[in-house]
Amino acid sequence: MLEAVNISKIYGLETVFHEVSLSIQAGESLAITGLSGSGKSTLLSVLGLLLEPNQGKVFFQGQNVSDWHDNEKSRLRNNFFGFIFQYPQLIGSLSVLENILVPARLARRANCKKKAEEVLHDLGMQNRITHLPHQLSIGQKRRVAIARAVLLEPLVILADEPTNDLDPDLAARVGEFLFELPKKGNALILVTHDLSLAQKASKVVRLVNGKVGVSQ
């Protein structure tokens, strides 16, 4: 479904990663691990078409999407990708429900409210629908961010350290929710330094010195 072939990312004189190749199919999960600063998040951004690789290509459903026009990439992200960022990235003035509906608004899709409420219910957030982000704990914010990522039922979920700052119980619950997604046919790519979380993935890659060091 999503494949990266020999992709490299270079900032000035610094090579973040070099000629990395990996792929993921529907129903699979891929964990990217590595030390802090090893380029995991940058790799996720390139896979999610948020960043251009300096070299190599990214294929989605067999098509080389690296060369697509910026607008086409935006539409692709909106329709097929769901992002869970390292930080929850909620808009302070919007309620929980409104935050979740942002991708739907950008896609000009009406009638997503019911679906949003269902997702919030699945994440145990049904009583926080009208709350503003500052009224939520970090764990609750993360769940809102996850709800936003899965609202439009994207084919690929890209999650960057989704269990950061969470207590072990909550981290386990979030992990459980995420790893349910491949069972429904989604592809899940997550960046984490939590090895116990990574081990639940069907594939694990480790970035070492800008190269894929270990593959499972």
């Binding site: 999610g48 948020l50 910026d70 607008n71 935006s74 539409r75 992200r77 909106n78 329709n79 990708f81 992002f83 960022f85 990235q89 808009i91 942002v102 991708p103 950008l106 896609a107 936003r148």
Partner: peptide, 16 residues
């Protein structure tokens, strides 16, 4: 900038 970046990441085009 952060908000625009978020919108872009979530699928907003430059035109949006």
């Amino acid at each position: 900038k952060g908000e625009w970046g978020l919108y872009r990441a979530l699928g907003a085009t430059r035109r949006d």
